[in-house]
Design a binder for these strands. Structure first.
Lengths: 189, 189
DNA sequence: CCTCCTGCCTAGGATCTCTAGGTTAGCGCA
DNA sequence: TGCGCTAACCTAGAGATCCTAGGCAGGAGG
């Protein structure tokens, strides 16, 4: 084990902190090496390449997000669960923009990030238990829900709501009301 | 005017084609110079830097998108308009993934891209005329609509819907039904 | 014909990704 | 104790990218 300084986990954690500070697209091997006070070549014994680093970051972010969401959902049902889920989701994206961006990259199901993504998807589906939707409407509703939350969060992040006096928080609350309403009365085929 | 080869417009158009082929994050000054059979340093007399290039690309994409949407909306109202708008939006994102990604970058209102973004926002608002919503509900609904469409399109693009037999097209149709329903019965405060 | 301006050039510095191969520190074991 | 093994780090360097500085050439205007 030699100098026991950098392990893969410590490395990925440092990368996660760094990317929240500088943005996901500004996350470079060099910057990470500088932060760890190490030469950049040294990181390549822990991580295959930048893609690999990003993938591990995505897995970390998806796991963390699923944890938060699971905690928020505990003991809640119906609209209560929906609001708790949505707020956990948005709060995570706000607190950890880099990690959140990392979680959006394309991941194949085989990778370690794949199982984290599956867990996240199952939690989303769990919310809909309160709304009594049968397949395939349930899948459609899950996609609708995920689309709206992700869309809102990423538009907010990109500054899309800044050019209007109405606060994003207010629109968010009303959007959750609307989501609850549409899930309650999901239109029949 | 000298050799009259590359103009800013020709340059941005080439960049748009290139980014649709290789992805927005793979759009580099070097690659663009190679495609135009010119040294990369030469492009810096037309464009200040990569950020500037991306901004111009965003302006182009927003203008094109607004054009498509305006055409789709012509002569339609109500749900008809909503569906036409949404399909124009999604079709553009599918046909021009790089341009669409470019349109999502953060833009300040002063830039030329700012006016294109405003025009796009006005068109989105025009749809809601069919749904008789007063402020501030109208703004909330516009944000909700935009969030859902953008979220769906970007999740679809990232492969988020691939791990399930239900087709994205089917979910899309049902999501538009749901959007129409929620806009029709937008929950009162 | 001469000059200016424009569009492109070469040269080069800085940063980043990644590979090849060498060095050192702690571990197990005779 | 001393030996080798291995893990973690190193230096050196190739190739790509972004961008600046300064030069050259060809068409426009006087």
């Amino acid at each position: 084990m030699a100098r026991t300084k950098v392990t893969v986990e410590r490395l990925v954690n440092a990368a996660a902190d760094l990317t929240d500070e500088v943005g996901f697209d500004q996350l470079t091997v060099s910057a990470l090496a500088r932060r760890l006070d190490v030469r950049d070549a040294s990181l390549y014994s822990h991580v295959r390449n930048v893609q690999d680093l990003r993938m591990r970051l995505a897995a970390l972010a998806l796991t963390e997000l699923a944890d938060r969401v699971a905690e928020a959902l505990a003991g809640r049902a119906g609209k209560d669960a929906l609001v708790a889920f949505a707020n956990a989701y948005r709060d995570y994206a706000k607190a950890h923009p880099g990690r959140y961006a990392a979680a959006q990259i394309e991941i194949d199901a085989e990778s370690p990030a794949g199982s984290a993504a599956r867990r996240h998807a199952e939690l989303t589906r769990a919310i809909l238990r309160g709304y009594a939707l049968a397949e395939p409407a349930q899948t459609d509703a899950v996609r609708f829900l995920h689309s709206t939350l992700h869309g809102f969060v990423s538009l907010e992040r990109a500054g899309g709501f800044r050019h209007h006096p109405r606060t994003a928080d207010d629109s968010w609350r009303r959007s959750l009301d609307a989501l609850d309403a549409v899930l309650t009365t999901w239109p029949p085929d």
